[in-house]
Design a binder for these strands. Structure first.
Length: 634
RNA sequence: GCCGGAGUAGCUCAGUGGUAGAGCAGCGGUUUUGUAAGCCGCGUGUCGCGGGUUCGACUCCCGCCUCCGGCUCCA
């Protein structure tokens, strides 16, 4: 047989040769260092036979930052962890232990709960294993033999995994520990130079909260101690951009235990909020939306009609009254907008009708799910509902996608798009979902938007196009969403009178681009690391009088710049100039003007965020400011 | 909600049974400042909340709340 090497030469090998045999044919050093074989973008264990005629590339212990090479290293480290835990905690049951982004984990069922202190002990045991050295043996056996083996070892989770496994069953053994595992793995533990166990957490077996909760140990591993140190340093660095930390430092918002999950917006944070709100209003107006306001609290009957009582009640704040009535604070605007639409007879001439509302919503999120601004109970969506005919769906979806591109483009955000399809608890028939999902897919295709499919991730009333962004801690959050809904208008009996003098069903597109102001601002804080673009910055210009006798001139300057609609403040504290300049920098204010004996309206000492200094006239500065704001197309 | 960790001054944190501490911030004074921290002085506190053990609890025990890292769930 033949394989093709990266320099396009062909390598002749005996039939059925493995990657390891190919490596030996090239050189003993390569055979020793090979950790993986990559072929056509896929990686496989060096112990497995190669495919005839395919290009191959070896990943070695020197490819220390290749994601695949790191992944196999970490996967093997996970097995070392399991070996160590089995030795230290007799009676422990092992579940699964895959590599993940930036590390690995392994799930166990411990006979007695363990604590974070135990990690140190386990880590020491892993280090001991590494010192002794481990090598991995691979074998393939039948499912029946594997089941028998894990029954004998009293490993019920492995038995269950064998039962649902597809394809041939492979086992990897090192240091007397045999694991059911698809691989690939290292040949030897020597390249594992640094292993660190990072945290302990509960995790449900197979990700289902009805199952037993296992104990998950997270860790990471690298080909060198220096790489591990650099990784830990990056994590520390990321923390400095965390919106929760910057929110306090920049005086944007805070949280208080008297209302968990609901931010208190400080004046500076509110400036950002309101600036986004103005943007939303302006663009909605340009694109034919009508702003409305609907009630915050509704009687139970409304939620029954909308389906929320059945599908969403656990997330709603309920208000039982003495008279036996039950109310709930709205978690979404849609039912209110349904009532608004239904409050009059609608003609085909009225459609499409686009209602926009950024009302505060409340969702009773699980306490453990709350997270800064990105997961709150007080949610303000930049919400809108487009009521349209079946024929108008495509063009309305086009409008929402053009709008979507505009919004994300303003911030230079590049979210990932997800098509979220019918969930288990859906309303309506499969035929209806075929239609609504199909309409979203076609819209994505028309706009050449790449997306991945989230099976069963749709809302109970319709499929969605969701936009996701990751935060500094690599957590993914859903921001915008575009949802096509045939269910809710039907449940509210919404129709319009067609040109044919007959009633026709109405469709609704639910859409939001920020998703929620709260989450969006959280993501923006991290995206800009607190250094907001001029148009969004809470304070755009800080004025610093050099000495007391310059205050009057500075106040006049302030009045003049504010008259042009810019946000200015003055730092006239009796602190040294150096200190006040430093604080303006720490507060990430885009422009600072120092004003002393040498300055006049014709010659201002301008300092930009980052330290660049220049001299500009007041008029020139205002021209620059107007140009900055023009970037968002006012 | 579940697993693990934490809660001490406005912020970041030290303090492990015997009278609560540091840096920054703040306040008072001094300096009148030229582009990232001038100098001197002052501790500002129900040690998250409630109960218990003890002669004595920030410290030990129990319950609760909140936050942090995960799981589950979601904008």
């Amino acid at each position: 047989m033949k394989v093709i090497l990266p320099d396009s030469t062909e390598l002749e090998l005996p039939d059925g040769a493995t990657g390891l045999e190919a490596a030996r044919a090239i050189g003993p050093k390569l055979a020793e260092q090979a950790v993986l074989v990559r072929s056509n973008g896929r990686v496989q264990d060096v112990r497995l036979p190669l495919a005839e005629g395919q290009p191959i590339q070896f990943l070695t212990t020197r490819d220390t930052s290749d994601p695949d090479a790191l992944s196999v290293l970490r996967h093997s480290a996970a097995h070392l962890l399991a070996e160590a835990v089995r030795r230290l905690y007799p009676g422990v049951k092992v579940a699964i232990g895959p590599p993940i982004e930036n590390g690995f984990y392994y799930d166990f069922q411990f006979p007695e709960p363990i604590r974070e202190d135990d990690l140190e002990r386990i880590e020491a045991e892993i280090d001991r294993e590494l010192e002794e050295g481990r090598s991995w043996e691979r074998e393939e056996i039948s499912a029946a033999a594997a089941k028998q083996r894990f029954l004998e070892e009293n490993e019920p989770y492995k038995v269950e995994l064998v039962a649902t496994a597809e394809g041939p069953i492979s086992l990897y053994t090192q240091g007397g520990f045999t694991d059911l595992c698809r691989g690939p793995h290292l040949q030897d533990s020597a390249p594992i130079k640094a292993v660190k166990l990072t945290s302990l957490a509960g995790a449900y077996w197979r990700g289902d909260e009805r199952n037993t909760q296992l104990t998950r140990i997270y860790g990471t591993a690298f080909y060198s101690q220096a790489d591990l140190d650099a990784h830990l340093e990056r994590l520390e660095q990321a923390k400095t951009r965390d919106h929760r930390r910057l929110g306090l430092q920049l005086d944007l918002f805070h949280f208080d235990e008297h209302s968990p999950g609901s931010p208190f917006w400080h004046p500076k944070g509110m400036t950002i909020f309101n600036t986004l709100e103005e943007l939303r209003r302006r663009e909605n107006r340009r694109r034919g939306y009508h702003e409305v306001k609907t009630p915050l609290i509704y009687e139970k009957a409304l939620w029954v009609t909308s389906g929320h009582w059945d599908k969403f009640r656990e997330n709603m704040f309920l208000i039982p009254l003495d008279d036996g009535h039950e109310y709930a604070i709205k978690p979404m605007n849609c039912p209110g907008h349904m009532l608004l639409f239904g409050s009059a007879l609608r003609s085909y001439r009225d459609l499409p009708l686009r209602y926009a509302e950024a009302a505060p919503l409340h969702r009773d999120e699980l306490a453990g799910a709350l997270h800064g601004l990105t997961r709150v109970r007080h949610v303000t969506q930049d919400d809108a509902h487009i009521f349209c005919t079946r024929e108008q769906i495509d063009s309305e979806l086009d409008g929402t996608l053009v709008y979507l591109r505009y919004v994300y483009g303003l911030f230079g955000l590049e979210p990932r798009a997800e098509l979220s399809t019918r969930p288990d608890n859906k309303l309506g028939t499969d035929e209806e979902w075929d239609f609504t999902e199909g309409a979203l897919i076609q819209a994505l295709d028309r706009h050449e938007i790449d997306y991945f499919v989230g099976e069963g991730e749709g809302s109970f009333y319709g499929p969605k196009i969701d936009l996701h962004m990751t935060d500094v801690l690599d957590r993914s959050w859903q921001l915008g969403t575009i949802q096509l809904d045939a269910q809710m208008p039907a449940r509210f009996g919404l129709t319009y009178m067609g040109a044919d003098n007959h009633e026709h069903p109405v469709f609704v597109i639910h859409r939001a681009y920020f998703g929620s102001f709260e989450r969006f601002i959280g993501i923006l804080v991290e995206h800009y690391a607190g250094a907001f673009p001029f148009w969004l910055a809470p304070v755009q210009l800080r004025l610093i009088p050099v000495a007391e006798n310059h205050r009057e001139a500075v106040h006049a300057l302030r009045t003049r710049v504010e008259a042009d609609g810019f946000r200015v403040d003055v730092d006239e504290r009796e602190e040294t100039l150096g200190k006040r300049v430093r604080e303006a920098e720490v507060e990430k204010i885009p422009f600072t003007v120092v004003y002393g004996d040498k300055e006049s309206d014709e010659a201002l000492a301008v300092r930009e965020r980052g330290g660049e200094q220049s001299t500009r006239s007041l008029e020139a500065l205002l021209v620059d400011f107007r140009a900055e704001v023009a970037t968002i197309g006012t």
